[in-house]
Design a binder for these strands. Structure first.
Length: 293
DNA sequence: GCGTCCAGGTCTACC
DNA sequence: GGTAGACCTGGACGC
Protein backbone atom coordinates (compact mmCIF):
# COMPACT_ATOMS: atom_id res chain seq x y z
CA UNK A 1 0.00 0.00 0.00
CA UNK A 2 1.36 3.41 -1.01
CA UNK A 3 0.35 7.01 -0.93
CA UNK A 4 1.53 10.61 -1.23
CA UNK A 5 0.72 13.57 0.96
CA UNK A 6 1.18 17.02 -0.51
CA UNK A 7 3.14 19.24 1.82
CA UNK A 8 5.35 21.57 -0.21
CA UNK A 9 7.74 22.98 0.78
CA UNK A 10 8.71 20.13 3.04
CA UNK A 11 12.12 19.09 4.41
CA UNK A 12 11.89 15.57 5.86
CA UNK A 13 15.35 15.71 7.42
CA UNK A 14 14.40 18.87 9.30
CA UNK A 15 11.35 17.19 10.85
CA UNK A 16 12.97 13.84 11.58
CA UNK A 17 15.95 15.41 13.34
CA UNK A 18 13.87 18.01 15.15
CA UNK A 19 14.62 16.13 18.38
CA UNK A 20 15.82 12.71 19.50
CA UNK A 21 12.81 10.47 18.83
CA UNK A 22 14.19 9.23 15.49
CA UNK A 23 16.98 7.57 17.48
CA UNK A 24 14.52 5.54 19.59
CA UNK A 25 12.71 2.38 18.48
CA UNK A 26 10.42 1.68 16.74
CA UNK A 27 11.76 4.58 14.62
CA UNK A 28 14.63 3.97 12.21
CA UNK A 29 16.19 6.80 10.21
CA UNK A 30 18.39 6.08 7.21
CA UNK A 31 20.20 9.35 6.60
CA UNK A 32 21.79 8.14 3.34
CA UNK A 33 18.49 7.33 1.65
CA UNK A 34 16.55 9.91 3.68
CA UNK A 35 13.92 7.40 4.69
CA UNK A 36 12.13 7.10 8.01
CA UNK A 37 10.70 3.74 9.01
CA UNK A 38 8.54 2.87 11.99
CA UNK A 39 5.95 0.40 13.19
CA UNK A 40 2.59 1.75 14.16
CA UNK A 41 -0.76 0.44 15.18
CA UNK A 42 -3.34 1.23 12.50
CA UNK A 43 -6.72 0.25 13.89
CA UNK A 44 -6.00 -3.30 15.20
CA UNK A 45 -3.16 -4.04 12.76
CA UNK A 46 0.55 -3.34 13.21
CA UNK A 47 1.90 -1.73 10.06
CA UNK A 48 5.50 -1.19 8.96
CA UNK A 49 5.57 2.28 7.45
CA UNK A 50 8.36 3.90 5.44
CA UNK A 51 8.33 7.60 4.59
CA UNK A 52 10.44 9.35 1.96
CA UNK A 53 10.45 12.76 0.34
CA UNK A 54 8.16 12.59 -2.67
CA UNK A 55 7.10 14.83 -5.51
CA UNK A 56 5.86 17.99 -3.84
CA UNK A 57 5.43 16.34 -0.46
CA UNK A 58 5.82 13.03 1.34
CA UNK A 59 5.60 9.55 -0.11
CA UNK A 60 4.76 6.63 2.14
CA UNK A 61 4.58 2.84 1.82
CA UNK A 62 3.04 0.47 4.36
CA UNK A 63 3.11 -3.29 4.90
CA UNK A 64 0.73 -5.04 7.28
CA UNK A 65 -2.19 -2.68 6.76
CA UNK A 66 -3.67 -4.46 3.76
CA UNK A 67 -7.43 -4.30 3.78
CA UNK A 68 -7.52 -1.00 5.63
CA UNK A 69 -8.33 2.30 3.89
CA UNK A 70 -5.15 4.17 2.84
CA UNK A 71 -6.53 7.21 4.66
CA UNK A 72 -5.98 5.38 7.99
CA UNK A 73 -2.25 5.05 7.29
CA UNK A 74 -2.05 8.59 5.92
CA UNK A 75 -3.54 9.88 9.17
CA UNK A 76 -0.73 8.25 11.16
CA UNK A 77 1.90 9.67 8.78
CA UNK A 78 0.37 13.15 9.13
CA UNK A 79 0.61 12.87 12.91
CA UNK A 80 4.18 11.50 12.95
CA UNK A 81 5.45 14.27 10.65
CA UNK A 82 3.34 16.96 12.35
CA UNK A 83 1.93 17.93 8.94
CA UNK A 84 -1.19 19.59 10.34
CA UNK A 85 0.69 22.19 12.39
CA UNK A 86 -0.08 25.73 11.22
CA UNK A 87 3.21 27.58 11.61
CA UNK A 88 2.40 30.65 9.54
CA UNK A 89 2.17 32.97 12.56
CA UNK A 90 5.36 31.57 14.00
CA UNK A 91 7.28 32.00 10.77
CA UNK A 92 6.06 35.58 10.48
CA UNK A 93 7.43 36.25 13.98
CA UNK A 94 10.75 34.67 12.97
CA UNK A 95 11.01 36.87 9.85
CA UNK A 96 10.48 39.94 12.01
CA UNK A 97 13.43 38.84 14.14
CA UNK A 98 15.81 37.79 11.41
CA UNK A 99 18.34 40.31 12.69
CA UNK A 100 18.53 38.28 15.89
CA UNK A 101 19.21 35.06 14.00
CA UNK A 102 15.72 33.60 13.69
CA UNK A 103 15.23 34.16 9.97
CA UNK A 104 16.51 30.71 8.99
CA UNK A 105 13.49 29.13 10.70
CA UNK A 106 11.06 30.79 8.28
CA UNK A 107 13.35 30.33 5.29
CA UNK A 108 13.67 26.59 5.84
CA UNK A 109 10.14 26.06 7.09
CA UNK A 110 11.34 24.62 10.41
CA UNK A 111 9.08 24.01 13.39
CA UNK A 112 7.39 20.69 12.77
CA UNK A 113 8.38 18.17 15.44
CA UNK A 114 8.62 14.41 14.98
CA UNK A 115 5.84 12.73 16.94
CA UNK A 116 5.22 9.12 17.86
CA UNK A 117 2.23 7.39 16.27
CA UNK A 118 0.38 7.72 19.59
CA UNK A 119 0.35 10.26 22.41
CA UNK A 120 0.81 7.42 24.91
CA UNK A 121 4.12 6.55 23.21
CA UNK A 122 5.21 10.19 23.29
CA UNK A 123 4.35 10.53 26.98
CA UNK A 124 6.17 7.35 28.02
CA UNK A 125 9.26 8.32 26.05
CA UNK A 126 9.30 11.74 27.71
CA UNK A 127 9.05 10.07 31.12
CA UNK A 128 12.02 7.89 30.18
CA UNK A 129 14.18 10.92 29.35
CA UNK A 130 14.00 12.26 32.90
CA UNK A 131 17.12 12.31 35.05
CA UNK A 132 19.30 10.14 32.87
CA UNK A 133 21.67 10.13 29.93
CA UNK A 134 20.37 9.71 26.39
CA UNK A 135 22.06 6.28 26.26
CA UNK A 136 19.93 5.13 29.18
CA UNK A 137 16.75 6.49 27.59
CA UNK A 138 17.55 4.55 24.44
CA UNK A 139 18.19 1.41 26.50
CA UNK A 140 14.93 1.71 28.46
CA UNK A 141 12.79 2.31 25.36
CA UNK A 142 14.46 -0.59 23.49
CA UNK A 143 13.92 -2.92 26.45
CA UNK A 144 10.30 -1.85 26.83
CA UNK A 145 9.48 -2.52 23.18
CA UNK A 146 11.11 -5.95 23.28
CA UNK A 147 9.58 -6.87 26.66
CA UNK A 148 6.03 -6.39 25.46
CA UNK A 149 6.49 -8.35 22.18
CA UNK A 150 3.79 -6.29 20.56
CA UNK A 151 4.63 -7.00 16.92
CA UNK A 152 7.58 -4.62 17.06
CA UNK A 153 5.34 -1.62 17.63
CA UNK A 154 5.51 0.45 20.79
CA UNK A 155 3.32 -1.33 23.37
CA UNK A 156 -0.17 -0.12 24.13
CA UNK A 157 -1.00 1.10 27.63
CA UNK A 158 -2.63 -2.18 28.64
CA UNK A 159 0.49 -4.16 27.72
CA UNK A 160 2.73 -1.84 29.78
CA UNK A 161 0.29 -1.86 32.70
CA UNK A 162 0.34 -5.66 32.69
CA UNK A 163 4.10 -5.84 33.23
CA UNK A 164 5.18 -6.65 36.79
CA UNK A 165 7.03 -3.79 38.50
CA UNK A 166 9.93 -6.15 39.09
CA UNK A 167 10.20 -6.76 35.34
CA UNK A 168 10.15 -3.02 34.64
CA UNK A 169 12.95 -2.49 37.13
CA UNK A 170 15.15 -5.50 36.39
CA UNK A 171 14.59 -6.15 32.67
CA UNK A 172 13.54 -2.79 31.24
CA UNK A 173 15.90 -1.06 33.71
CA UNK A 174 13.58 1.85 34.40
CA UNK A 175 14.66 1.92 38.05
CA UNK A 176 12.68 4.27 40.27
CA UNK A 177 10.56 5.31 37.26
CA UNK A 178 8.82 1.91 37.26
CA UNK A 179 5.93 2.81 39.62
CA UNK A 180 5.37 6.12 37.75
CA UNK A 181 5.22 4.28 34.43
CA UNK A 182 2.90 1.58 35.79
CA UNK A 183 0.53 4.12 37.32
CA UNK A 184 0.39 6.17 34.12
CA UNK A 185 -0.15 3.15 31.85
CA UNK A 186 -2.75 1.77 34.24
CA UNK A 187 -4.75 4.99 34.24
CA UNK A 188 -4.67 5.19 30.44
CA UNK A 189 -5.57 1.50 30.04
CA UNK A 190 -8.48 1.71 32.48
CA UNK A 191 -9.89 4.82 30.83
CA UNK A 192 -9.41 6.88 34.00
CA UNK A 193 -7.11 9.12 31.95
CA UNK A 194 -8.27 10.05 28.45
CA UNK A 195 -5.19 11.27 26.59
CA UNK A 196 -7.26 12.58 23.68
CA UNK A 197 -8.38 15.38 26.02
CA UNK A 198 -4.79 16.70 25.97
CA UNK A 199 -5.01 17.00 22.18
CA UNK A 200 -8.15 19.13 22.13
CA UNK A 201 -6.98 22.38 20.56
CA UNK A 202 -9.61 24.52 22.26
CA UNK A 203 -8.45 23.81 25.80
CA UNK A 204 -6.26 26.36 27.64
CA UNK A 205 -2.57 25.51 28.05
CA UNK A 206 -2.72 25.86 31.82
CA UNK A 207 -5.49 23.30 32.07
CA UNK A 208 -3.68 20.70 29.98
CA UNK A 209 -0.36 21.33 31.70
CA UNK A 210 -2.03 20.97 35.09
CA UNK A 211 -3.36 17.57 34.11
CA UNK A 212 0.05 16.42 32.87
CA UNK A 213 1.71 17.62 36.07
CA UNK A 214 -0.88 15.69 38.08
CA UNK A 215 0.58 12.44 36.70
CA UNK A 216 3.33 11.07 38.95
CA UNK A 217 6.76 11.41 37.40
CA UNK A 218 5.83 14.33 35.16
CA UNK A 219 7.51 17.38 36.66
CA UNK A 220 8.20 20.77 35.04
CA UNK A 221 10.64 19.49 32.41
CA UNK A 222 8.53 16.49 31.37
CA UNK A 223 5.31 18.50 31.24
CA UNK A 224 6.84 21.27 29.12
CA UNK A 225 8.43 18.75 26.76
CA UNK A 226 5.14 16.93 26.29
CA UNK A 227 3.36 20.27 25.79
CA UNK A 228 5.85 20.97 22.99
CA UNK A 229 4.84 17.71 21.29
CA UNK A 230 1.21 18.75 21.68
CA UNK A 231 1.97 21.93 19.73
CA UNK A 232 1.67 24.12 22.81
CA UNK A 233 4.82 26.24 22.84
CA UNK A 234 4.30 29.01 25.38
CA UNK A 235 6.74 27.49 27.87
CA UNK A 236 10.41 26.70 27.21
CA UNK A 237 10.91 23.26 28.75
CA UNK A 238 14.39 24.00 30.04
CA UNK A 239 16.60 21.13 31.09
CA UNK A 240 20.26 20.75 32.01
CA UNK A 241 21.36 20.36 28.37
CA UNK A 242 19.35 23.25 26.94
CA UNK A 243 20.26 25.58 29.84
CA UNK A 244 23.91 25.06 29.04
CA UNK A 245 23.33 25.45 25.31
CA UNK A 246 21.32 28.66 25.52
CA UNK A 247 23.90 30.15 27.89
CA UNK A 248 26.62 29.54 25.28
CA UNK A 249 24.45 30.78 22.45
CA UNK A 250 22.77 33.85 23.88
CA UNK A 251 24.48 34.82 27.14
CA UNK A 252 28.23 34.50 26.41
CA UNK A 253 28.44 31.21 28.29
CA UNK A 254 27.15 32.67 31.54
CA UNK A 255 24.45 30.61 33.17
CA UNK A 256 21.72 32.63 34.79
CA UNK A 257 18.24 32.22 36.12
CA UNK A 258 15.57 30.58 33.98
CA UNK A 259 13.58 33.82 34.16
CA UNK A 260 16.28 35.60 32.12
CA UNK A 261 16.01 32.99 29.36
CA UNK A 262 12.21 33.25 29.46
CA UNK A 263 12.43 37.04 29.06
CA UNK A 264 14.69 36.65 26.03
CA UNK A 265 12.16 34.50 24.14
CA UNK A 266 9.06 36.23 25.53
CA UNK A 267 8.57 38.39 22.37
CA UNK A 268 7.56 35.20 20.55
CA UNK A 269 4.53 34.90 22.83
CA UNK A 270 2.75 31.57 22.36
CA UNK A 271 5.64 30.44 20.16
CA UNK A 272 8.39 31.16 22.71
CA UNK A 273 9.15 27.50 23.42
CA UNK A 274 9.45 26.62 19.73
CA UNK A 275 11.71 29.61 19.03
CA UNK A 276 13.87 28.56 21.97
CA UNK A 277 14.06 24.92 20.91
CA UNK A 278 14.96 25.68 17.30
CA UNK A 279 17.50 28.25 18.48
CA UNK A 280 19.39 25.78 20.68
CA UNK A 281 19.21 22.98 18.09
CA UNK A 282 20.07 25.05 15.02
CA UNK A 283 23.52 23.49 14.66
CA UNK A 284 21.94 20.04 14.37
CA UNK A 285 20.61 21.08 10.98
CA UNK A 286 23.69 22.83 9.62
CA UNK A 287 26.03 19.91 9.07
CA UNK A 288 23.90 16.78 9.17
CA UNK A 289 26.07 15.26 11.89
CA UNK A 290 24.82 12.68 14.36
CA UNK A 291 23.09 14.39 17.26
CA UNK A 292 23.31 11.72 19.88
CA UNK A 293 26.17 9.67 21.30
C1' DG B 1 39.93 -1.58 39.04
C1' DC B 2 37.51 1.53 41.98
C1' DG B 3 35.05 5.61 43.61
C1' DT B 4 32.67 9.70 42.31
C1' DC B 5 29.97 12.56 39.50
C1' DC B 6 26.20 13.57 36.74
C1' DA B 7 22.95 13.21 32.89
C1' DG B 8 17.46 16.23 28.47
C1' DG B 9 14.39 15.38 37.10
C1' DT B 10 10.82 14.33 40.38
C1' DC B 11 8.89 13.31 44.77
C1' DT B 12 8.28 13.79 49.66
C1' DA B 13 9.08 15.75 54.04
C1' DC B 14 10.02 19.61 56.40
C1' DC B 15 10.49 24.42 57.49
C1' DG C 1 7.11 28.72 48.50
C1' DG C 2 11.53 27.04 49.08
C1' DT C 3 14.92 23.53 50.13
C1' DA C 4 17.25 19.00 51.32
C1' DG C 5 17.66 14.34 50.53
C1' DA C 6 16.49 10.09 48.24
C1' DC C 7 15.98 7.70 44.08
C1' DC C 8 17.85 3.91 39.44
C1' DT C 9 21.13 3.50 35.84
C1' DG C 10 25.35 3.62 33.26
C1' DG C 11 29.05 6.20 31.03
C1' DA C 12 32.89 9.48 31.82
C1' DC C 13 36.48 10.78 34.50
C1' DG C 14 40.28 10.95 37.92
C1' DC C 15 43.23 8.36 40.67
Amino acid sequence: MRGTIGAAPFDLDLVVRSHGWYDLPPFEWDAASRSLSFRARVDRAVASVTVRPGNGGVGWAARGAEGLPASRVARVVRRVLDLDADLSGFHAACRERSAQGFGWIAERGAGRLLKSPSLFEDAVKVLLTTNCSWALTRSMVTNLVSSCRDGGAFPEAAAVAALPERSLREEVRTGYRAPFLLAFAGRVASGALDLSRWEEAGRPDAEVEGEIRAEKGFGPYAADTLMRLLGRHARLGLDSWSRKKVAELRFRGRKGKDARVERFYAPFGRWAGLAFWLDVTRDWHDGGESLWP
